[in-house]
Design a protein around this nucleic acid. Structure first.
Length: 569
DNA sequence: TGTATAACTTAGAACCACGGGC
DNA sequence: GCCCGTGGTTCTAAGTTATACA
């Protein structure tokens, strides 16, 4: 295990503990023996506006109570954002804002459209400008203070090892920003107090102290879970957690395990495919539906698709929750037979649009599933994620729908790298190949991003640089030609150097263009077995730093320790 | 068998600091 | 030395899965 290093670095642990530790790690859900931390960092208290920053209602100045003012500032801070123009957002905000008003305010303020937050908004903009314009020394002071807080609250001790905590700061109050068409956007996310907080730590640790004059909701000692702090959030009523950083042993080990499960799937995926193809012919509808859904999950890397409570969240779907309206069947399209056109909103309301030729049997089954149904009916009415996952569990230990995404992502990277890396290429060209392989995965997983606001301009700038470099190259070549006798060698070198620089720029331009609407980070961080990339680096002499930045190297420390140049997923 | 809940992973956007180019 | 763009970091929402319970 690559995680033994963290054990052996503990000088006080006797050797025999090594075994004990390993045993306990993996049995009956125990996650740790010892856990000590300092608790969360709370959001700073509300700092009231200076009296010259005014709020106007119906054109008239109105002094708000501190509570109502605070909520108003949340809206004011978002004034430039599209959110504040949306009806749902405004309605939810207004409703929750009223709850924070005094009865006098409530009776005066009866229409959000008559509220003028512009002075507040200007004030916050000025504040942020002022922050930018601060002296070096003042900025340094803030940095030092942040570092002090990080050192005090940002680490914990888990089983004798100091580990970085991920989100040790409690989420500050504000207005809820849901993604897509979220029915709750604009609602007030309330301030979290010590009385809301459940602390989890070991009995024999030094328990974190609540701020003076306050109490925790509860202190518990549950070593079957990994979280340090939790609270219940007021928008969906779900629980939020403070957990460890990805660099921690507990996260790394889990990550490793995830990829090992995906590699086990590799060994039996052909058997499973044969099985679901066979099930397309089943006389039972539920089996056919299960088999077609699994085919989509496997072929298209769709998410499982749990049911969601209507009206509580944005209307998004995954495989099992697909509705008839999300598919269009084309007997024939662009010279291909049996094309399925998918168009639906997935996680984070990201659109999935794809036209896929499928096997005749799948097509016929889809026609059957869609027969006599309304557009808003479930495509797989005899299936849900629980049924699907129970079936998968029977096919392979630890197999669930999401393992297919991990497996298909990683195997795609591996195949693409094997296929397109050219050992003759220089380092930037090899990295372009890597990014293209990464991109193939991101496309498979539908990882999209909004094109950066500065995209057009930055492409233009790059083109300008390329043009200038071309001219420089032409000059250098001319000079080389002219100087038949003098310093020929050094001029040849100059030409070569410029050619290399030009190529680097052109590669950069290609890479950026191809990346316009595709996000590589998510697959890199969550789906691609890092050992594939590390082995590739070793094999082709690419420094790992070119592929993984510092944070990523910390997260993947286990893989860097482990992977040899011949590792194959 | 269905439903609620808890725990944990995955996700894109916003924010911020830093370094390269002028 | 300054400005601007970018990559890295932070933030927290939105998924999946397991499990408890009716």
């Amino acid at each position: 295990s690559p995680f033994l290093y963290s054990l052996t670095s503990n000088p006080t642990a006797p050797d025999t503990c090594l075994f004990l530790w390993e045993e306990e790690r993996y049995t009956d859900g125990v996650k740790w023996k010892f856990l000590e931390h300092k608790g969360p960092v709370f959001a700073p208290p509300y700092d009231p506006l200076p009296s010259n920053v005014k709020f106007y209602y119906d054109g008239k100045h109105m002094k708000l109570s501190s509570t109502a003012e605070e909520v108003a500032t949340f809206f004011a801070k978002m004034l430039d954002h599209e959110y504040t123009t949306k009806e749902v957002f405004r309605k939810n905000f207004y409703k929750d804002w009223r709850k924070e008003m005094t009865s006098e305010e409530k009776s005066k303020i009866t229409d959000l459209n008559k509220c003028d937050f512009s002075e507040m908004s200007e004030y916050f903009k000025a504040q942020s400008e002022a922050r930018k314009a601060m002296t070096k020394e003042d900025k340094q002071k803030i940095k030092e203070e942040n570092e002090r807080i990080l050192q005090e609250y940002g680490f914990c001790i888990m089983d004798n090892h100091k580990e970085r905590i991920a989100n040790f700061r409690i989420e500050p109050p504000g207005l809820f920003r849901g993604r897509g068409d979220h029915p709750k956007m604009g609602m007030l996310k309330r301030r979290i107090r010590p009385e809301d907080i459940i602390v989890n730590c070991s009995k024999d640790s030094k328990h974190p102290k609540p701020p003076p004059g306050t109490k925790w909701k509860e202190v518990r000692h549950d070593n079957k879970v990994t979280w340090l702090v939790s609270w219940t959030e007021n928008i969906q009523g779900s629980i939020k957690y403070i957990m460890l950083n990805p660099s921690s042993r507990i996260k790394g080990e889990k990550d490793w395990q995830k990829y090992e499960t995906a590699r086990r799937l590799k060994k039996c995926v052909e058997r499973i495919r044969a099985q679901y193809r066979d099930d397309w012919k089943s006389k039972e509808m539920r089996i056919r539906q299960r088999a077609v859904a699994l085919y989509f999950i496997d072929k298209l890397a769709l998410r499982a698709g749990n049911e969601k409570e209507e009206g509580e969240t944005a209307d998004t779907v995954g495989c099992c929750s697909l509705r008839v309206e999300h598919l269009t069947l084309h007997q024939e399209m662009d010279g291909q037979e049996y094309v399925v056109e998918f168009d639906f909103l997935g996680k984070d309301s990201i659109r999935y649009y794809n036209k896929v030729p499928v096997e005749k049997r799948v097509f016929k089954n889809l026609q059957l599933f869609m027969e006599d149904k309304e557009p808003e009916d479930d495509l797989f009415d005899r299936l849900n994620t629980s049924i699907l996952n129970k079936h998968l569990q029977e096919l392979m230990d630890g197999l669930t729908a999401k393992v297919f995404r991990t497996y298909n992502a990683s195997i795609t990277l591996q195949q693409q790298l094997n296929e397109i890396t050219n050992s003759e290429d220089n380092v930037p060209a090899k990295i372009l190949s890597y990014n293209r392989a990464n991109r193939a995965v991101a496309i498979l997983c539908n990882h999209q991003r909004a094109p950066p606001k500065t995209f057009e301009k930055s492409m233009q700038n790059l083109q300008t640089k390329i043009d200038a470099k071309k001219e420089q190259l032409a000059d250098a070549k001319r000079e080389l030609k002219m100087s038949k006798y003098l310093a020929v060698e050094s001029k040849k070198k100059a030409v070569q150097r410029i050619e290399e620089q030009l190529m680097k720029l052109e590669v950069q331009a290609t890479d950026r263009e191809e990346n316009k609407q595709i996000a590589l980070g998510t697959s890199k961080l969550n789906y691609l077995d890092p050992r594939i990339s590390i082995a590739w680096c070793k094999k082709f002499g690419i420094p790992i730093e070119k592929i993984y930045n510092k944070t990523q190297r910390e997260k993947f420390a286990w893989a860097i320790d482990m992977a040899e140049k011949d590792f194959q997923f």
